[in-house]
Design a protein around this nucleic acid. Structure first.
Length: 287
DNA sequence: AAATATCTCAACCGCAATGTG
DNA sequence: GCACATTGCGGTTGAGATATT
């Protein structure tokens, strides 16, 4: 599966990984830890670029990766997070223990995006249908003739740990301050008040992670908006208006009524004199 | 049974951010 | 401050599996 080797530039292998390559990579990470991907090839003689090694480790060889069908809860969480964050798959993956950004991205593109596009509610009846693919996966897993990779996979995931890897936290804390994409996959990514206030979503986030998310991303978002808003207010742009769709998604805001994005979000994202306002909500959070 | 369409997912690519000398 | 190397992310590709005609 996957792409076939296209070239052997610089003598590097491309395409599907072999069992031997996987073993080399795993052994290296075991002894040296993650991070020094470019050194890996030099020190082990593995004919793979660092990028490829990292990808293989992150998406496949990590011992804590969870395989199998996305559960209904996970699907709902993905949907909510995508609505909130857009196509920031690594950030979304950070909230789903054992799931990789690639896996979530694939799942979204192959299934949830269509659902979102069709504006279908997340109906259980549809979820029940999905196991058409789930059955396919199960059938694959049950196959007696598994590829060496699949075999390894099974071994790996039999012993998988359900806890989040420490890198997940790093993913959140080191996430770049990109704004949520609105152009992504034709799906809504506006930040809805309903989502922000959604108790189950909030409960799903640990206070630590949420604070990190807010500190790393939305605080910057607000900073940008503050500057841009000031310019817009004083310049030719006039009051910052939200699109009709965005207003609707924010809920309770009459269409056409000028909306001050900053003032709407400020209570949620900005710090008070005594610290982030969310601190007061910590009692609501659970880990 | 064969041809065709659809789906899945591992892997590649390009870009931007970050680190290093 | 600059140039180069490395890392990380999101978008995209395409082989193989499966479903449909």
């Amino acid at each position: 599966m996957g792409r076939s080797p296209r070239c052997s530039k610089d003598g590097l292998n491309k395409g599907a990984w072999t069992v031997v390559e996987d073993e080399i990579l795993k052994n290296y990470v075991k002894s040296k830890g993650e991070g020094k991907w470019s050194n890996l090839a030099k020190e082990t003689g593995l004919k793979r670029c660092g990028k490829s090694c990292r990808l293989r480790w992150m998406n496949y060889l990590r011992p804590d990766i969870k395989r199998g069908n996305i559960s209904g809860d996970e699907e709902e969480l993905i949907t909510r997070l995508h609505k909130l964050l857009g196509n920031r798959w690594s950030l979304i993956a950070g909230r789903l223990p054992g799931r990789t950004d690639n896996e979530i991205k694939n799942y979204w593109n192959s299934y949830l995006a269509k659902k979102a596009k069709d504006s279908l509610p997340v109906a259980r009846s549809n979820i029940e249908k999905k196991p058409v693919y789930g059955l396919r996966n199960e059938a694959r897993n049950d196959q007696a003739n598994v590829t060496p990779q699949q075999h390894m996979e099974d071994q790996n995931h039999d012993s998988k740990v359900a806890t989040r890897p420490s890198t997940d936290t790093n993913q959140v804390t080191t996430e770049k301050s990109k704004l949520p994409s609105e152009s992504s996959a034709g799906s809504p990514s506006s930040t809805s008040r309903e989502d922000i206030n959604s108790s189950d979503f909030i409960l799903d986030l640990s206070s630590e992670d949420l604070c990190k998310m807010l500190d790393s991303d939305f605080a910057k978002l607000v900073d940008v908006d503050m500057n841009e808003l000031n310019n817009a207010m004083e310049g030719d742009g006039g009051p910052l208006l939200l699109s009709e769709g965005m207003e609707k998604s924010l809920g309770g805001i009459e269409s056409g009524q000028p909306t001050n994005l900053v003032s709407d979000f400020r209570p949620l994202f900005l710090e008070s004199d005594d610290g982030w306002l969310g601190d007061d909500m910590d009692v609501l959070f659970s880990d």
